[in-house]
Design a protein around this nucleic acid. Structure first.
Lengths: 307, 307
DNA sequence: ACATACTATTTAGTAATACTAAATAATGGA
DNA sequence: TCCATTATTTAGTATTACTAAATAGTATGT
């Protein structure tokens, strides 16, 4: 790298400001010879003398004056830039931008939101609620929350929940009409309301669990949504059987609008994870959020797992 | 010096501008690992990630964007400052400011002035014509020309002339009236026109030479000037005997207005020197002037010493 | 999907640089 | 003149920067 052009200018500026090499050495926290040698090296690199020094005083040469007047303000600007950059990482104040799906919000973030906001009055949360898997960095997000099966391997991932229970469900009216499936293969004879991944642009596999093995089934996609709430909605309206996270359907199961079927075969989905690029690991706001989420996750497990 | 805060920023900025570590390495003239390590070290120092890098592309984190936007312009300013500073030393154009006495001008500079100006059309000369010995650097001069006996030891000195012949002289009318001294001690009985050093604020010794020895004499200072031309003027007007450089009085000696006395005792003064602070030794304009002056000095000696 | 071609990183070793302590030199003031 | 202070030189040491070689990761084309 052959010595950056600006190398040593800090020493020069400090000498001028302090008025002597010794004072500059004290300010910089080094011995006097270090300053002397650095200054000499700088003059050597620039090919011109900068400071006329006697043991009792210093004076700038013409070149020294030019450098001091031009580089001084620029150097201060750089110091300021560095300071601001540090603050991005160190600040306990600021805005944390997250990208997360509705399900992720409900299952992972919502339970701790109130406490987090109360504990961290300086941190604003900016939540982008979308189902697509976005490039969180390019879009200006600090982190995202997604299901574990869609994570990039180059992201740091923090598990936020246990595995997520799922449910096959339909309205009682539909089931009365079309019959209640006893085994997943019966689904092939049913109206199945499928979910299409918005980004991958393909219909999500239906996976069930039998004898401890995951098995894929592909019932006819008579009705497809790219949003989970659409699936639930259609199921409630009696259009067929949907497969969703249990938490998402829970309220309708409780009210009797939906009825669960095939429960022994309902496979758990991988947990939600918060993920972020390695380079954001020192953003203090993010660390605080993660602490909060993980604390909640661990308390959940102790008090009794929900999902 | 514990690593200047701005250290490594050049590497960071280059990476961002070039779009990859490898390209930055090429630009900086180092291997790829060097860049990688420097970037990592910078992130470590700032306590925050700056660039998210995969093998095919890079992206800035929020902190990286802050740093790039704030430090980029400041860094360019510093580069510019360094460039301007270099030019002070390297430029063959510009203004050279000299402090010199009238005698120095006549004896040392004037003979080469025309040639120097012709050879160096880019260099402007700014001459401060004063008898006082000024602090050339504090006053913004690059160099000065003075007699050898008043030089500070911390300046680089370049001899420009041989020893300077002096002359005791008076008007023929005065000498007819007061008599022609045969030996310096006769001066004690004469009106002597003395010279007072403007800076030192003391009357200059009269020194003569006898048997190879310098001897000081202190005739009554009936009439004192702080400018050599005053001494000459008064001598021409018949007010007494003056002591001056022979070159300064030459034209009046030739015209018969002045008549030399005590020539065997007239001591030569030390030569004129150009002097400048060590730190200006690389100012290219000054080197050119010195070359020109020294060339002339040596040609003078070969062709026949004048003084 | 697989190989290919690039790019980044790690590691270990080496070259270069920065710094210190101690001695020396220089300077302004009592 | 000496004293107090400051700068510089020198020699040695510690730190840092860099490279080469090996490894790992990723987008592109086939």
């Amino acid at each position: 790298m052959e010595r950056a052009p600006v190398h040593g200018i800090e020493v020069f500026l400090t000498i001028v400001q302090e008025g002597s090499l010794r004072a500059a050495a004290n300010v910089l926290g080094v011995g006097a010879p270090a300053v002397s040698l650095q200054l000499k090296a700088l003059e050597e690199r620039l090919g011109v003398g900068l400071i006329i020094r006697s043991t009792r005083s210093i004076e700038l040469t013409e070149a020294g004056r030019v450098l001091f007047e031009a580089a001084g303000p620029a150097y201060r600007d750089m110091i300021y830039a560095v300071k601001k950059t540090r603050e991005v990482g160190a600040s306990l104040n600021g805005t944390l931008r997250l990208s997360l799906s509705r399900g992720a919000y409900v299952a992972a973030l919502a339970p701790v939101l109130e406490r987090f906001q109360a504990d961290n009055p300086g941190i604003n949360l900016e939540l982008s609620w979308n189902e697509e898997l976005v490039d969180i960095n390019r879009e200006g997000f600090h982190a995202g929350i997604r299901l574990g099966d869609v994570l990039s391997p180059d992201m740091v991932a923090v598990r936020l929940t246990g595995p997520l229970a799922t449910v096959f469900s339909a309205s009682p009216g539909y089931l009365d009409r079309a019959g209640r499936p006893e085994h997943p293969r019966d689904l092939l004879e049913h109206n199945c309301i499928r979910y299409k991944l918005p980004t991958a642009n393909r219909i999500a596999d239906w996976v069930f669990c039998e004898d401890g093995q995951d098995k894929v089934i592909d019932p006819p996609a008579r009705l497809v949504f790219d949003h989970v709430l659409g699936v639930i909605q259609a199921a409630r309206e009696g259009h067929g059987i949907g497969w969703s996270m249990r938490a998402t359907a829970e309220e309708h199961l409780a009210s009797g609008e939906l009825e669960a079927v095939l429960d022994p075969y309902a496979r758990a989905l991988p947990p939600f994870y918060l993920y972020y690029p390695e380079q954001n690991k020192r953003v203090e706001c993010l660390r605080l959020l993660i602490d909060c989420l993980v604390t909640h996750r661990d308390r959940q497990r102790r008090d009794g797992p929900k999902s």
